Amino acid sequence: MNTDRTHDIATMLLRAARRKRLVSYQELHALFGRDEPLHSRYRALEDAARSLSDCASLDYGCLMSLDNGLPGDDFFNRFRHGRPREYEKVMGFGSAGRSTTKKRLIADAERRRVFEHASQMTVSVNANGSSGAYAASKCT
């Protein structure tokens, strides 16, 4: 795993959160070479999102945006597995998770939480003076 790439993605996500904007998957993929496998890219995205919050209930991956404005299946899969009760409450018991209206409810609520979290984070400064996105922060 390329830690520089993970750091770049985390920085991109944090910057977007502070500006209350979304990140397109095209922006994510532009950080990688053509021959980098998709599973590697999404693993780096997941690692970057986890580096921004040690909270099991907060996922910076929600800031990713497809053409329809929703994050991709990677986010919804993490959400469904990490917070099954919350997922079920919105999507319904036994839901296949296809409703874009209900997905939008989940994504919008998570994005509001992430925007709030990012506004309260402090940025760490490395020894060389460059800022890093890996600041320890707890959700309240």
Rank of each mutant, 00 (worst) to 15 (best):
M1V: 10
N2I: 08
N2G: 02
N2P: 09
T11H: 05
T11M: 09
T11V: 06
M12G: 00
L13Y: 13
L14M: 13
A16M: 06
R19V: 07
K20C: 11
L22R: 04
V23S: 01
V23I: 00
V23E: 03
S24G: 07
Y25D: 10
Q26K: 14
L28N: 06
L31A: 00
F32Y: 15
G33E: 15
E36H: 06
E36A: 06
P37H: 08
H39I: 10
S40C: 02
R41P: 00
R43C: 12
R43T: 14
R43K: 15
A44K: 06
A44P: 12
L45V: 14
E46M: 14
D47P: 07
D47V: 10
A49V: 12
R50H: 14
R50Y: 10
S51T: 09
L52I: 13
L52G: 05
D54I: 09
A56S: 12
L58F: 02
Y60M: 08
Y60D: 07
G61C: 12
L63V: 04
M64Q: 13
S65M: 08
L66M: 11
D67E: 06
D67W: 04
D67S: 07
D67I: 08
G69E: 05
L70H: 02
G72T: 10
D73T: 01
D74P: 06
F75A: 01
F75Y: 09
F75H: 00
N77Y: 05
N77I: 03
R78Q: 11
G82C: 14
R85S: 11
R85V: 01
R85A: 13
R85I: 03
E88H: 07
V90E: 03
G92I: 05
G94C: 07
G94W: 03
S95F: 03
R98E: 11
R98H: 02
S99D: 00
T100I: 05
T101D: 14
K102W: 07
K102M: 00
K103I: 03
K103W: 00
R104F: 01
I106V: 05
A107D: 09
D108W: 02
E110T: 00
R111E: 02
V114D: 08
F115P: 09
A118Q: 09
Q120E: 15
M121P: 06
T122E: 15
V125W: 09
V125Q: 13
N126S: 12
A127G: 09
N128V: 00
G129D: 11
S131K: 09
A136M: 08
A136R: 08
A136Y: 11
S137R: 14
K138A: 11
K138T: 06
